[in-house]
Every structure is written in structure tokens, then in C-alpha cells.
């Protein structure tokens, strides 16, 4: 995983979920272990990522990208 992608993603998550300076928590974050990450927030995160990275996720990728780690991996492949 490139540092740039991870750093940019952390910034998005920090802002989205109000998790400033909680890098370790963000790295382990997933929809199943964080209440605030509901389906609507999930959509907003993906759209924010699409805007920032100028990349487009497929429907299946959106559904599967339910953790910070998976989002990083998907972005790496694009």
C-alpha cells in the first residue's frame, strides 16, 4: 500500500467520523465494528473517495469495500 493513498484515506476518515489523531483505530475500522459506518455513510465515504482520487468504483466494489483495509486494497488495484 502506498503511503499517499493511506494518508489521504486516513484524512477522509478522520473528517468523516471525527477521528482526529486516531490512526490506529482508523486502520482497523470496518462497517461491522463501527456503529457510525452505516449504509448511508458508506455511500458518502465512497463518493468522497471517488472525488478525491478521481477513481470510480463498480457496484460490487462499493458493496465489498466495507473496511478501511479493503478500500485501500481496491484503490491500489485501480
Amino acid at each position: 500500500m502506498t503511503l499517499d493513498v493511506e494518508t489521504m484515506l486516513i484524512k477522509i476518515f478522520e473528517k468523516k467520523f471525527n477521528l482526529k489523531n486516531k490512526k490506529n483505530k482508523i486502520l482497523k475500522l470496518s462497517a461491522s465494528n463501527f456503529k457510525k459506518w452505516d449504509s448511508l455513510e458508506h455511500l458518502k465515504i465512497i463518493m468522497e473517495i471517488e472525488r478525491k482520487f478521481k477513481k470510480k468504483f463498480t457496484f460490487t466494489e462499493i458493496i465489498n469495500c466495507n473496511s478501511f483495509k479493503k478500500i485501500c486494497e481496491t484503490l491500489e488495484k485501480k
Partner: peptide
């Protein structure tokens, strides 16, 4: 944006 529709019933693209 069909992806958005099938996830959140959002018909239109951003």
C-alpha cells in the same frame, strides 16, 4: 448513476 440507485435509491449522478 446506477450504482447509487441500487445501493441507496439515488437515481441521479453527483
Amino acid at each position: 448513476d446506477n450504482r447509487l440507485f441500487y445501493i441507496s435509491k439515488t437515481r441521479y449522478s453527483e
